[in-house]
């Protein structure tokens, strides 16, 4: 089963073979975890969203042929659901609350945690670009295709994100 192609596993899953679907989950979990956890942090919510990604994939298996690869398809669902959550969060927490939360224990935070906090303050659309390009290693063109924007938008968002992160980290932690 482990050596079977994604396509044959999908055919078996459609026929009701849940073990085939499990192999697909194991095979692609890393990619989904990378995207969801980069955007939502290592939280129970991130795992719930990860589950939701695969459940949606299972429900839409019959539509799979419309997509180029399982990886691309899962990446798109993971991004969509994570960004939805980020936007929901942004509505419920004011910028003041976020800043207070970060500044409150600044001294205790390591550089990585500080980076995560600064990253979470970026616009969700900018975060998506950073995750795809810099965390997951997609090319600029692939990132543009996945997000359905043009490459110059990707480059602008990347530059903006890196500039903001560098500024924040340089001032606060003397990077």
């Amino acid at each position: 089963m482990e050596n079977s192609s994604d396509e044959s596993l999908i055919v078996k899953s459609l026929a009701g073979d849940l073990n085939a679907f499990k192999t697909l989950v194991v095979r692609h979990e890393g990619k989904v975890a990378g995207i969801v956890r980069s955007l939502l942090g290592i939280t129970p919510l991130a795992e719930d969203i990860g589950q939701e990604v695969f459940i949606r994939f299972y429900d839409e298996l019959h539509k799979y042929r419309e997509h180029s690869t399982v990886n691309t398809y899962l990446t798109k669902i993971a991004l969509k659901l994570s960004v939805q959550e980020l936007k929901k969060k942004a509505k419920t927490h004011s910028a003041y609350e976020i800043t207070e939360r970060v500044n409150g224990h600044e001294e205790q935070k390591g550089l990585n945690e500080q980076l995560q906090n600064e990253f979470s303050k970026l616009d969700p659309d900018v975060q998506s670009v950073v995750v795809l390009r810099l965390v997951e290693g997609f090319s600029v063109e692939e990132t543009a295709e996945l997000l359905e924007v043009n490459t110059s938008t990707v480059l602008t968002r990347l530059a903006k994100a890196q500039y903001n992160l560098r500024n924040a980290l340089t001032i606060k932690l003397k990077l």
Partner: peptide, 17 residues
């Protein structure tokens, strides 16, 4: 600094849930 930030971001990558 930019290279350092990019390296740190790369390490954010999780390999499983």
């Amino acid at each position: 600094q930019y290279y350092k930030i990019r390296e740190m971001l790369k390490r954010k990558n999780a390999d499983s849930f």
